[in-house]
Design a binder for these strands. Sequence first.
DNA 1: ATGAGAAATGTAAGGGCTTACATGGTATCG
DNA 2: CGATACCATGTAAGCCCTTACATTTCTCAT
Lengths: 344, 344
Amino acid sequence: MTIYDISEKAGVSIATVSRVLNGSSSVSERTRQKVLDTIEQYGYTPNAFARGLGLNTMKTIGIMCADSSDLYLAKAVYYIEQKLRAHGYDSLLCCTGYELESKAASMDLLITKKVDSIILVGSNFVYEKEQDNRYIAEAAAQIPVMLLNASFDAPNVYSVLSDDYTSMYKATRQMRADGIEDILYFYNSDSYSGKRKLSGFLAAMEQALPGTGPLVEFYPGSHEDIHAMIRHLEAVREKGIGFHGVIAADDTLALAAVKYARAAGYRIPEEFSAIGYNNSMLTGCCEPELTSIDNRLETLCQHLITTLLGILEGREMPKKTIFSGEIIERGTTRRLREGTKQNS
Amino acid sequence: MTIYDISEKAGVSIATVSRVLNGSSSVSERTRQKVLDTIEQYGYTPNAFARGLGLNTMKTIGIMCADSSDLYLAKAVYYIEQKLRAHGYDSLLCCTGYELESKAASMDLLITKKVDSIILVGSNFVYEKEQDNRYIAEAAAQIPVMLLNASFDAPNVYSVLSDDYTSMYKATRQMRADGIEDILYFYNSDSYSGKRKLSGFLAAMEQALPGTGPLVEFYPGSHEDIHAMIRHLEAVREKGIGFHGVIAADDTLALAAVKYARAAGYRIPEEFSAIGYNNSMLTGCCEPELTSIDNRLETLCQHLITTLLGILEGREMPKKTIFSGEIIERGTTRRLREGTKQNS
DNA sequence: ATGAGAAATGTAAGGGCTTACATGGTATCG
DNA sequence: CGATACCATGTAAGCCCTTACATTTCTCAT
């Protein structure tokens, strides 16, 4: 069943059928109905390839993310896919892993597949070394590239991100205001946002205790292995380093910190505090529940899609948008700051 | 840059270039190299649409899942995407939600987009009423449809699933063997596998205590809201129904049960047991750690892809494959069965 | 009624690729 | 050395749409 069949059955030319299909230019209401009826009757669907060839687009967006099974990234991918679909775009998903090479390769692949744009989900796509980001600039020479949770300045590259620096800065200040001196920063990624978060922590600590070397621990293992994280923290203590608060770059790490602290016999939050990041469902999984920073992922995604659609329609759009995060207080932090409303 | 440009630069015909590109039929090694060099030199990539139009395939597989942010589904999508990519296929992701209507609509959409096959990830795609599954059969009339964790018998539909019935049956028997009489079955889905799990539980209970009405609770709320789950369990107790063990259809539910039990003052596993399902990262999130059923998701996905590739190559493939699951014992169950090796 | 201009429709030229078939060249055999 | 068979390559006909441009049909003011 092709457009020719329909045009024949409906007694019009293929051009007219095409016009009806695309809603463009003028077709009299009468013919329009006639064509529509015929299409309905014969159950015709235009061939996507031929259409793509003609229009040079198939309304498909490439979504790249390192690991779509990661709690946070999965959520982002979900929001993005939803919102794209709502606007008639499909999503070609590409889980690239964390190596630069395979990211670049996936990017080429998506471009070859003729996606209209590529969305890079997660801050690990932007590297410190400028040259490592060349692959992004190269892709952007062909189609717009959107960054979620990262920023990179190049033509045709658009960024939407959360103000991780300030969020961490505030969290750190808050924990100090709660009277905790020895805070350990626990993180597992040197990604773009990973670095911003760390800077926020360091800035707050430097301001509070100038010249002191703040406690900072990098966890290199698997993102899901809470055991290993706990062991890591135990190893830190065994080195004689004491800490009564943990600010983590991620809820999983924070959860590990809570479990570590409980095992070590601390009462939480009286003797030990923890703040996580992402405000994921994991916050409900520990006792007491985890205070966490919400970076308004859905808002970010919404904005990213709005921006993308604008670009695809040829409008001028902001190259970089930053949203602020919010600390969601739960049971792993006390509240000495505002008066003396304490938790216990 | 088209195939014409290359053919010109290389001094051959477009047919030859095409042949080199597709590795088909015979091309002399000399011309082959010449063409390859030219392509390399000018950085030519064939136009995917034109190619699709000619070959009537773009090596793309549709992946449908209700909610790709669900821990378990996200993992499945991840495995599938990885394995497909390894074989040169791309994945068009489609999060459909849980309504039949939108599932059917998404299916049409994917077919319109000319995917080579559709994979339905998750058991919620198969309904009890035969007629509600018509949308699957209809799609299968056009392209092969693969079911993960569900089964539905129709031409061109292939199923790969875990033996949820037996897994639950075993888990239930095991908990009873551990001396727990009042086991509550806690579930949140009437999906295909949801029903199989429930049956396994009921069968084991019926066998143990014929005629007794087993305790069964359906949780209707959000998949992520652990609080609500806990409240639900509390409400059950307030109705005067006692239980000292929970078998849950899902790790999140089991986690809620553990939190519920701890809050109620039970010692785990001495006074209260719990078994979850999926063996997800959540098992490491509670104290003690959660015993859970592993349904070998990666194996399922691997097999599903192998089957799919076979079908696409025109080979005959098994229509239904069932793998057995495995109980991974952790801290929320005791072990009275095998001798007296106890946990505490 | 008539002619101009607008509206509706048709014609045909791509878009970039695959591939059946045609052609020319070379090796093989008697 | 001519006939046979094959291998390498080229020619051209699709694949199914979109759309610029040409043509026909209306509409309406005169």
